[in-house]
């Protein structure tokens, strides 16, 4: 059986908010490393991988691996009843047909109990190879979100080039073209506001802006975002949390 308690309901609320527009039905795999999720969007262009590690839970007990088949829209309806500061306890039996969610407010004078019906979702699991990326860029998540939104008004695709000068996002569309170049700027006082680039080799790839704008919904999870690129492999966009992460992989657009 599973029993997992989060001090702050906002952790799960924010994660579900970040991925609910990309995937609809997915398995929350509960095991002794915590709660994990991996799912592709319907068109198989993007993959999201999430991990809430055991250390992030005030209490975590999972006797055997449990897959919780959940419709994220339904889960979000239940999570709306939780205040961000409520303590949230998730409970499920082995091979469960429902997930119990209990929200307790900090004054301890309101306790809310919900049961969410579970689904049978047979989703194949994909192997994500460890990759030495050609370029790894760490930057403010708000900055990345602004760039993706601005360029998505001009074009459907963005070319991302990482060189030792910096990282350049450029696009061309019917109304014209645009480009944003960020230079390495560590910002020693406030590292989370800086941009750092680790370059093993120059990289140039093209991606769909619609997906990048979608991924940026996760910006509330972290002040910074890490973008990892290598030629000919999917882009990795990672939002780190204190005890876990949400990662998005996006397949590139390939020129003939």
């Amino acid at each position: 059986m599973l029993e997992a308690r989060l001090e702050q309901s906002s952790v799960l609320k924010k994660v579900v908010d970040a991925i609910k527009d990309l995937v609809q039905d997915c398995n929350f795999d509960c095991n002794d490393s915590g709660i994990q999720l991996q799912a592709m969007d319907n068109s198989h262009v993007a993959l999201v991988a999430m991990h809430l590690k055991t250390e992030g839970f005030a209490l975590y007990r999972c006797d055997r691996n449990i897959a919780l088949g959940i419709n994220l829209v339904s889960l979000q309806k239940v999570l709306r009843a939780a205040q961000n500061e409520d303590v949230m306890t998730l409970k499920a039996e082995d091979s469960p047909d429902a997930l119990s969610l209990v929200f307790e407010n900090s004054e301890n004078d309101r306790i809310s109990e919900y049961d969410l019906k579970l689904m049978d979702i047979d989703q194949e699991h994909l192997g994500i190879p460890e990759t030495e990326y050609g370029a790894t860029v760490k930057m403010p998540s708000a900055e990345f979100q602004r760039i993706c939104r601005d360029l998505s008004l001009l074009s459907e695709s963005v070319a991302i080039e990482a060189t030792k000068e910096g990282i350049k996002f450029s696009c061309t569309g019917d109304i014209g073209k645009g480009a944003v170049t960020l230079r390495q700027n560590p910002n020693v006082e406030k590292p989370e506001l800086g941009t750092t680039i680790e370059l093993q080799e120059p990289v140039a790839l093209t991606f769909s802006l619609k997906y990048l704008v979608n991924f940026c919904k996760a910006s509330g999870l972290s002040n910074t975002v890490t973008i990892s690129l290598s030629n000919e492999v999917p882009l990795l966009i990672e939002y780190e949390m204190e005890h876990g992460y949400v990662r998005f992989y996006l397949a590139p657009k390939i020129g003939d």
């Binding site: 262009v45 994909l126 003939d256």
Partner: peptide, 14 residues
């Protein structure tokens, strides 16, 4: 002309 590639061609099913 660029065309979109797909995740399963990079990550194989376990």
């Amino acid at each position: 002309e660029v065309r979109q590639s797909y995740i399963p061609s990079f990550f194989n099913t376990l």
